[in-house]
Design a protein around this nucleic acid. Structure first.
Lengths: 140, 140
DNA sequence: GTATTTGCAAATGATTTGCAGTGCT
DNA sequence: AGCACTGCAAATCATTTGCAAATAC
């Protein structure tokens, strides 16, 4: 369990319980869209407003605490910043799973950083498919 | 120059000039957001409505003619469906450039297709950074 | 000729903003 | 006291929908 108060303070943000609530539900669920965060947080703290969630997502992204996961055909989800990894995204239900980046992608990234005129900062590898659960569901 | 009429008909769509206009500006510019498409198309065909663009983007995506490129921190862009490739995305100006996928990513994809319980269908590799133009601009 | 498609305008949905009130420190 | 943060409501922006008229084939 992460110490959200410390994480926030180290990022230069006040440790309000709204923010800690948001981080907690995101970490518990892995990847969440704004509306999902809102519904989850509301269970603990019904008066926490949607506007506060929007403001804090933007703020925490700018401080590098949260990362956006843009997804084709759906709303973006948000996750805690963590070591580089890939996403497996289910095109049926929208669930996202993390997978460690294979080492070979590091090489690719390094190669490109050198050879391209682009000054690369981050990468995003998303694989789309159908998760186990949805495969089973469709079979029935 | 692609033959858009044929492309559309082969995809089971009528070749209206609205659709051909849309495809033309997307191909010319590579990757475009909805509003950009609208502004560009308006130069040739001012009465083409935004609603028509939305309807056709959705339709042409469902037929596999267009592909969405979701981008962190910006609106999605759309491109013509083409052979698998990566995107270099500029975090300053939003420009997107294509790069061919290095072969090693094919291996990774194949490996994962087998070992994962996910039934993979497509991949999306986005590298974010600062393009040459924006590097120059910032330096000055 | 008929089914599809378009363009408009209205409806909906998502996100942002302004501001007064709260709660730190 | 002073500053940052929250919550509400209004404003804005993005996207979708319904329908009458126009068009592709």
């Amino acid at each position: 369990m992460t110490d959200y108060a410390t994480l926030l303070k180290e990022s230069g943000l006040k440790a309000t319980f709204q923010r800690m609530n948001i981080l907690e539900v995101i970490e518990k669920n892995g990847h969440m869209a704004v509306e999902e965060i809102y519904k989850e947080v509301a269970r603990v703290h019904p008066s926490l407003s949607l506007a506060t969630i929007y403001k804090n997502i933007i703020l925490m992204m700018s401080k590098g605490v949260l990362v956006e996961v843009p997804i084709a055909g759906r709303k973006s989800k948000y996750e805690l910043a963590k070591v580089d990894h890939m996403h497996l995204i289910c095109t049926e239900c929208g669930e996202v799973e993390d997978r460690s980046c294979l080492e070979s992608t590091d090489e690719i990234f390094d190669q490109l950083s050198q050879q391209e005129h682009f000054k690369l900062s981050k990468r995003q590898v998303n694989l789309y498919g159908i998760c186990k659960k949805c495969q089973t569901r469709k079979a029935s």
